[in-house]
Design a binder for these strands. Structure first.
Lengths: 188, 188
DNA sequence: GAACTTACATACCGACGGTCGGTTTGTATA
DNA sequence: TATACAAACCGACCGTCGGTATGTAAGTTC
């Protein structure tokens, strides 16, 4: 797994051969195929692992009691930072969707990764009355897609810091705009 | 090109072999490689063509003199319909980004496809004062990413019409929210 | 200790992308 | 019509790579 992760991150999934992974791991091809049905399952395992790791890091920003929309914003900021790390970008943003297919990619992310947290975050904000409770699933999809796009845009930008600031502001603005309007009495 | 387009649309890029394309086109492999440097260039050509075609269709919604934001909304609605067509979905949304890479995918779309129109539409809306003129490039990216995600979500949805309505509403709402606030005197 | 499972290793297969030497067809010139 | 050259085209061949078949040594169970 570590060997595969390294090679995928460095050369991409397609350009990494099963033999290379086996060699790096110090085992034979047969051993590898004993543990994984095929190459794609290796990627699925590596990606799932990565999702777990990122989930752990993202959970750090969830301060209980805080404004749920602010928590979401903080999560988005941190996620964008994670997205710029080479390993996550290559494996989770580029290879996984291409090789696993969009559906499975999102499913794994929803189960074990940041997408799942995002959905729960939106649901929490909705049940706290801060966001509309309608179309949470769809909102989550549009948001994660925007974050992913922003990450790739930042990665290619000649001025990454600036691009990050701009896109972050746009996304946070979107979150702010979608707040449920408060009654005047509630507005402190 | 037509042969390749059909096969890609039906079986996907990876699962289509050069020999199949050549056979279907009634030429030899050598002839094919005489016209295209490698397999990826065949996809690039097919995708570029597809972008042109879609651009033409999208241009139909641009009514001169209309509210630029409304034009954008209409364009988004039409684009979402295009996205649900099998050929466009498979080639432009699934295979092209995976095989060409995100950067080249967006570049072609920006040059010849809907993404270019979107950018110009946002720019037009900005210069008409309807949208902020800042961060147009980034806005365009976030919007096209949302549209793409919505398209794939719709394609997988058990209730596609409903999902399309929901996502369309969310995206139009976003556009509406990002209007530059008008002075009170201007608001008819 | 026989039957069986697990965990590997090695040799091998078929498909596929891409190359290359060579042939045919088209075209400009004399 | 003959010559020269280029563009279009053919199909056999090669290397790589994902995946499989076969073999084997070390437990585990009864």
């Amino acid at each position: 797994m570590a060997a595969a992760s390294d090679l995928f991150a460095e050369h991409g999934y397609e350009r990494t051969s099963i033999d290379q992974i086996a060699d790096r791991a110090g085992v034979s091809k047969g051993a590898l195929y004993h543990h994984y049905r095929d190459k794609i399952e290796v990627l699925a395992a590596v990606y799932t692992d990565l999702c777990h790791e990122v989930s752990g890091r993202l959970l750090g920003v969830a301060v209980p009691g805080a404004d749920p929309v602010e928590v979401l914003k903080a999560g988005c900021r941190l996620y964008l930072e994670v997205c710029t790390e080479r390993t996550y970008r290559q494996i989770a943003l580029i290879d996984a969707p291409a090789a696993l297919g969009w559906a499975r990619w999102r499913d794994i992310d929803a189960e074990d990764g940041g997408f799942g947290l995002l959905r729960r975050g939106l649901a929490a904000a909705a049940s706290a009355g801060a966001l509309p409770s309608a179309a949470i699933e769809e909102r989550a999809h549009l948001l994660i897609a925007a974050l992913t796009e922003a990450a790739l845009l930042i990665a290619r930008s000649p001025a990454p810091d600036e691009t990050r600031a701009t896109t972050t502001a746009l996304i946070e603005r979107q979150l702010e705009d979608s707040r449920t309007p408060r009654l005047r009495a509630e507005t402190a």
